[in-house]
Nucleic acid binder design. Structure first.
Lengths: 158, 158
DNA sequence: GGCTATTCGTTGCAAGTGAAACGATTCTCA
DNA sequence: TGAGAATCGTTTCACTTGCAACGAATAGCC
């Protein structure tokens, strides 16, 4: 393999990292500067906003964050009055997390701005190109998610 | 804007973040598990490997890391014997950073594995699709890099 | 030439992050 | 039923990160 040809700025993982970081940083101004939310908090709020009560574990499985991050994000959002937390009566290990009216209000202020940001980023792309991008990202995610090391799996950590 | 339609898992910044994070984590096994390098260290090494002596600032401008991260990465790589650092004789503020023989050796072991990883990720993509991906990412990066807030700029921080 | 402003790289420090440990609760199965 | 295993959410702790401040060195300007 010709490692003399290696050029970091052409290297896919690097390019994706840089692009994602820049985009996230710009987007974070939307929910961070105005509403004081962190990225984990924004993700949790966005996921819980239009859904039923759910546990920390369910959120973790859906927003690509580890367990402690979700736990902390939920605590902060609860303190801010955007989420309500209660112990599940059927299973006292579980916590039922739900968006509050105030939380929904905040979400409905942020979401349009977030969508506008996305639209601005994609504004110079045709419908066909957007479809291409969607497909390519989906396939890449699929490849990366292929579990190479299989286990019978006890408890999913984090 | 219909914020009820907002779905995090379809949201471009989120998708890119998740994809980039997963890919970087998998890649980091290549340089991390075997050679004990962190991501900033890997980026610095990869960038310096086939280049002339350069300063911290030049590296920073090329690898999308902030000043302290580059400084720390260089220090660690120097301690590990992969880089050599000396004070520039023309300008004593500057540092001249250069890869050592050992550093080049390590790089030539990692780079092929990194390229193989990239090739594996892209293995199911046709040449045309790779070109599409390349173009789309380049254009997205261009859009995100457009400076919205212009300043005369004093010192570039970090 | 000397004074100020700027640039360089490093370091301090506070905030964020993730792996592991923990107590509490429930499940499993003999 | 009861003991051990598994799961849940939180917390602890070590590590990383990014901003700001800093001392050192140079550039700019009168």
């Amino acid at each position: 393999m010709a490692s003399d040809d290696f050029n970091l700025s052409d290297f896919l993982p690097y390019r994706l990292s840089v692009l994602a970081a820049r985009m996230s940083k710009k987007l974070s101004k939307v929910y961070g500067d105005t509403y004081g939310l962190s990225t984990p908090e924004w993700r949790v709020l966005a996921h819980v906003a239009h859904r039923e009560k759910m546990s920390v574990r369910e959120i973790r499985d859906s927003v690509s964050l580890d367990k402690p991050s979700v736990s902390r994000a939920v605590s902060k959002l609860e303190k801010a009055g955007l989420l309500a937390k209660s112990i599940c009566s059927r299973d006292h290990r579980l916590v039922e997390i739900e968006v509050t009216e105030k939380g929904l209000e905040v979400f409905h202020q942020i979401a349009p701005e977030a969508l506008a940001f996305e639209a601005a980023v994609l504004s110079s792309f045709s419908a066909k190109e957007r479809q291409q991008l969607d497909d390519l990202l989906t396939r890449l995610q699929g490849v990366v998610d292929e579990q190479t090391g299989e286990v019978c799996a006890v408890d999913q950590p984090n």
